[in-house]
């Protein structure tokens, strides 16, 4: 039972990291990016090929180094960001709305097909494997305590990511991103460089996706194309939508409901139905239904994005009355 809990929590925190990254792109900057899972996958693959050592005969993949896990994770994040920079630089230049989504969908399919078909890259459809208990031997952990260690690691990373996003959330950068989401033309009329700002958000989001992917690779010990059909992105979108698009706490809640909760709720189904694909299929059906219902009836989610509230009934622009009440950080880091 405790093992099961550890599994669910580890997966939950990894998906929360990914969802927080996607939330920057979709929640704040407002772009429906279907390539996101590609960055997750690249992060996972890079982590593997940087740590597991050279390929042995039937398998082939690039690099094959034996770097320490943290360094490999950092490099994986960087490569995801570089890929996002390339895709974003092309797609964000002129495209918005469905055209942007279609091109990013195209990008991820190209990546998917190339990964699967071009075997020398990441060993094709068989994928890369062999990352057992990263950092376990350095820290001298045995198998049973290792899963607790990895859970702790994932939660620690999640907390750092949460601190980072919360800080950005109320910052001028976060506010400027919101203005792009709300009305691009007005944002440009008031001096915002839409392309560069959106691109920054896109690359940052992809970096968090890559980070989630890197941790996912350490958790799964292996990665192959069947682990990341591009449809996977929809689950992250469903989590964000249910929790509250743009809202950091909402996204965490959304992952808890749509990833961990749904997993838990459909856990005993395979035995009942006596059909291996039944539970995953049912989960996807529920995800699809939830997506439709939330867009229709509660697009702001369970915990909607909060706006900055100015509490100062008597303040009407009187500097003396205002100064003690509202302080800088409130505007800059308070939940906007």
């Amino acid at each position: 039972m405790i093992d099961y809990l550890v599994t669910v929590l580890t997966e939950g925190s990894i998906f929360a990291i990914m969802a927080l990254g996607l939330n920057i792109v979709w929640g704040w900057s407002g772009d429906f990016d279907l390539a996101f899972y590609g960055y997750v996958a690249l992060g996972a693959y890079m982590t593997l090929v940087l740590t597991v050592g050279p390929a042995t005969d039937p398998t082939t993949y690039i690099l094959g180094l034996t770097l320490p896990f943290p360094l490999a994770v950092a490099l994986a994040v960087v490569s995801a960001m570089v890929l996002a920079l390339i895709v974003g630089a092309i797609a964000l230049r002129h495209l918005r709305g469905i055209y942007f989504s279609i091109v990013t969908l195209g990008a991820v399919y190209v990546l998917y097909v190339v990964t699967g078909q071009f075997v020398p890259l990441f060993n094709g459809y068989n994928g890369v494997s062999g990352l057992f208990d990263p950092m376990g031997d350095v820290l001298g952990l045995d198998y049973s305590s290792y899963s607790f260690f990895y859970l702790g690691l994932c939660i620690a990373v999640l907390i750092i990511v949460l601190l980072l996003t919360t800080r950005l959330n109320g910052s001028r950068f976060g506010l400027a991103l919101r203005s792009l989401r709300e009305d691009e033309r007005a944002a440009a009329a008031f001096g915002r460089d839409i392309y560069v700002t959106k691109l920054k958000a896109y690359v940052l989001g992809a970096g968090l996706g890559g980070l989630g992917g890197a941790l996912y690779a350490g958790y799964l010990t292996a990665f192959n194309p069947s682990a990341w059909s591009p449809v996977e992105t929809i689950i992250l979108y469903a989590a964000i939508l249910v929790g509250g698009r743009g809202s950091t706490r909402g996204v965490v809640l959304g992952v808890a409901v749509m990833v961990m909760g749904l997993q838990e709720a459909t856990r005993y189904l395979p035995e009942i139905a006596n059909q291996p694909s039944f539970a995953p299929a049912l989960r996807l059906i529920i995800t699809g239904v939830v997506l439709v219902l939330f867009i229709r009836f509660r697009p702001q989610g369970i915990l909607p994005e909060r706006r900055f509230r100015d509490k100062d009934p008597a303040g009407k622009g009187d500097a003396a009355a205002v100064e003690p009440v509202v302080t800088g950080p409130k505007l800059d880091t308070g939940a906007a």
């Binding site: 429906f32 449809v231 469903a238 299929a281 699809g288 997506l291 439709v292 867009i295 229709r296």
Partner: peptide, 28 residues
């Protein structure tokens, strides 16, 4: 969706949800 004034992009996302549902009903 269109009648409620829900825009093209959200409806597009909703149809992605529909696609997911149909695919997996067929899988089952």
């Amino acid at each position: 969706f269109v009648r409620r004034g829900i825009g093209g992009l959200p409806t597009f996302i909703a149809t992605l949800g529909v696609s997911l549902v149909i695919q997996n009903v067929l899988v089952i």
